[in-house]
Design a protein around this nucleic acid. Structure first.
Lengths: 234, 234
DNA sequence: CGGGAGATTGAACGGACTCAAAGTCGGTGG
DNA sequence: CCACCGACTTTGAGTCCGTTCAATCTCCCG
C-alpha cells in the first residue's frame, strides 16, 4: 500500500484526487479478524473522504479491515454511471481477492482508517493452517451471499422495497443508541440501490410522513416501525 | 442426493412438481473438475426440465457439475417475482457453499445431467491438500465476480445493454458452429436480466431489424455484429 | 396436420428518471 | 457567537423507458 499510494501520488498524478496526505502509518496491535485468524498484525492507514483506496483491475496486494469510517466498493461505467456493490463498515474486511487483481474500486465514504495486511502473508498462513484457508474462503462466501441478495433487490424490488431493505441492513450494522447515523450521502445510497438520489429522498420523506421513521438532519434516522419495514423487505 | 430426493418425492410430495423419475444413478469415471482437483469421482444424475435440484435454505450436502443441459439458480419472492442469479452450463460447478445451507434454489432449465460429489468429501480432501482448498475458494470467488458484474447490469444498464451483455456472455459460453443455441425461454432471460419477457422479445427483434443478429426460431441466434454489441456492453 | 406452449407485437399505463428550483444544514471564518 | 457559504437535500413538474394487459402469431411436437 505504501509503495503503491506513494507511486500514485508522486508519479502518476491521479486525475480525480489532487493531493492527499497519504496517512499516518502506525503499527497496531489490537485484536482483529486478521490477528485472530492468522496471527498477523496489520498496519493502520488513513484515507480522507472520497480518497481512492484501490482501483479496479489493480494488483490485489493488500487486504483491508475497516477500523473507523466507511468504504464503498463500486463499478463504474465510462459515462459516469456507478454501481456500489457494498458498503464496508468498522470490523468489515474488504479487498480480499482469490485472483490476481481487484474487480472493483474502493474509496472512502468519509474519513476512514483501515488496517492492512499483505495478501501474500495471509496466503502463506493459509498454506500451513487450513483454518486460515477456511476463513479466507468464508470471507469470499460472505461477500457472495450479500451479492446474491443484492441481485434480487436490484433486479426485482420496487424503490420502496429497496429503501426498506437498506434501512434494515443499516439498522443491523450501524445502529448506536437506537439511531442510524449514515456515513453516506443520498447519491451513494442511490448508487447502491440502483436508484437516483431524488428517489431515495422521496421514499425517505414518504416513510417519515407515514410514521415509519424519524429524520433529524439527513444523516440521522430513527426507525419507528421495523415490523412494517420488514413487511416491505419481503 | 439420493436420500434427499427420495425423501422429497416419497414423503413430502413437493407442491410444484407432481412426480418425476429421480434418475438413473451411474458411476462416472471421465475427467472432471472434481476429479482433477480432488481425485474424487462423481455420480451422474438426471433431472427433467423444470425439476428442482435443491431448494433455498436446504442443507448443502452435495456439489454439482453440469454434464449436459442447463441449470438456473434463483431467488424467489413470495408474490412470484424471481431473480435468476446465474445459468450453469456444461462444465460449470454449482451448489458449492461455504456455510451450511444453500442460499438459492437450483432447477433444471431443460433435461439435465449432473455429476454430484458429497461436499464432505471435498472438504475432507481440502483438509489434506491446500490445492483443493484453493480450488474451492477459487470457485466461490468466480461466482462472486460474476455476481459483481451482474449487479452493475441490474442496477445501472438499460434494457438494450443488458441484452447485449447477455448475448455476448452466451456467445462465449455456448456457441457451437457460430450459433448460439439457447436452452432457456424468454421468461428465464427476463428473470436473469431484471426485465420482462416482452422486453427481451422486443429488444431481440430490434437487434435483428438492425442487422446485429439473426434469429432462426426463438432459441437459435447468430451474432452478426459483435463489435456493436460490445459497444453496448460497455 | 392440429394442438398448445412459447414468442411476438400493439396500445396504454405508470414508476422512476430528468430537469429545475427552493430549502436546509453543517462547517468555516470573521 | 453568529452570519455566511457551499454542498447536500427536498420538492415539483413533465417525460420516458419498461411494464402491463391483450391479441395474434409461430413453431415445435405429437
Amino acid at each position: 500500500m505504501f509503495s503503491q499510494a506513494a507511486l500514485a501520488s508522486d508519479l502518476a498524478t491521479p486525475p480525480l484526487l489532487p493531493s492527499f496526505k497519504i496517512g499516518n502509518a502506525v503499527n497496531f496491535t489490537g485484536g482483529s479478524l486478521f490477528a485472530s485468524y492468522s496471527g498477523l498484525l496489520g498496519t493502520a492507514f488513513s484515507y480522507a473522504k472520497d480518497e481512492e483506496i484501490y482501483g479496479d483491475d489493480e494488483p490485489a496486494e493488500y487486504v483491508y479491515e475497516v477500523m473507523s469510517g466507511a468504504v464503498r466498493t463500486c463499478k463504474l461505467l465510462d459515462d459516469g454511471r456507478r454501481q456500489i456493490g457494498a458498503f464496508h463498515l468498522p470490523g468489515d474486511v474488504f479487498g480480499l481477492e482469490s485472483g490476481p487483481n481487484h474487480r472493483l474500486t474502493a474509496d472512502a465514504v468519509i474519513d476512514t482508517t483501515v488496517r492492512i495486511v499483505r495478501r501474500r502473508s495471509l496466503e502463506a498462513a493459509a498454506q500451513n493452517n487450513i483454518q486460515v484457508a477456511n476463513a479466507l474462503w468464508a470471507l469470499t462466501a460472505r461477500d457472495l451471499r450479500h451479492a446474491e441478495d443484492h441481485m434480487l433487490l436490484l433486479g426485482r424490488k420496487t424503490a420502496s422495497e429497496r429503501v426498506a431493505t437498506f434501512l434494515l441492513e443499516m439498522d443491523r450494522r450501524l445502529t448506536v443508541a437506537g439511531m442510524i447515523e449514515l456515513p453516506m450521502c443520498r447519491r451513494d445510497i442511490g448508487d447502491y440501490l440502483g436508484l437516483t438520489l431524488e428517489t431515495i429522498s422521496r421514499v425517505l420523506s414518504q416513510f417519515q410522513s407515514e410514521g415509519m421513521l424519524g429524520l433529524s438532519g439527513a444523516r440521522h434516522i430513527m426507525l419507528r416501525n421495523r415490523q412494517r419495514l420488514r413487511g416491505m423487505n419481503i
